[in-house]
């Protein structure tokens, strides 16, 4: 039986092949000829980023809206903002937070006000063509902590009547000037 096995092994793998099987030598592979790929679109720029640039040109040609929501220099939670729509109606409110879209026109500002002693909130889509202008009217002397001020709702930090506050501030400044 043993003899048979060895015989068959010898038949399957003659010594020459066994040697070649274990000690591999480098052989140059045949090179493939293929057609040239098409030139890259958008100079290889990401499709999302390219489209965002195009949309910014259309919806924010002056770059004012992008500046407003800039994380370092733009509007901050705690600022008081005046929003003007295309039909000249206005909304005042204190900013609770800015929700920024990445390569996206979905960026919006959440503002809160107290109207007839009732807390009211609106989300302002910054790049919406219906919104004509967003203006920072007032900045607090000291900001509360966190970038999102959702915790101020119904606490001692809550937003008061913004319009009344602005009026009061204006009168005070007028009185100072008069003195």
């Amino acid at each position: 039986m043993l003899g048979l096995l060895t015989k068959s092994k010898q038949l399957l793998f003659p010594t020459g092949i066994m040697h070649g099987f274990f000690a591999r030598s480098l052989v140059q592979a045949p090179t493939l000829t293929i057609y040239k790929p098409l030139p890259k679109k958008r100079n290889g720029m990401s499709a999302t980023k390219y489209l965002h640039q195009q949309l910014l040109k259309k919806f924010d040609p002056l770059g004012k809206r992008s500046q407003l929501v800039d994380p370092h220099t733009g509007v901050r939670a705690g600022d008081v903002v005046k929003v003007t729509y295309n039909d000249r109606s206005t909304v005042h409110g204190r900013v609770l937070g800015v929700k920024r879209g990445k390569d996206n026109l979905g960026t919006n500002i959440l503002i809160r006000n107290r109207i007839t002693k009732l807390g009211c909130e609106v989300r302002i889509p910054v790049f919406n063509p219906k919104v004509a202008n967003i203006e920072i009217v007032d900045k607090p002397e000291t900001y509360l902590s966190r970038s999102k001020h959702f915790y101020v709702r119904n606490t001692k930090h809550d937003v008061g009547d913004v319009e009344a506050m602005l009026k009061k501030k204006l009168e005070e400044s007028k009185a100072k000037k008069a003195n």
Binding site: L105, P125, N128
Partner: peptide, 11 residues
Amino acid sequence: RDMISWYTEKG
């Protein structure tokens, strides 16, 4: 690719 916000002419 990504999902985005899209504004129509009407807003």
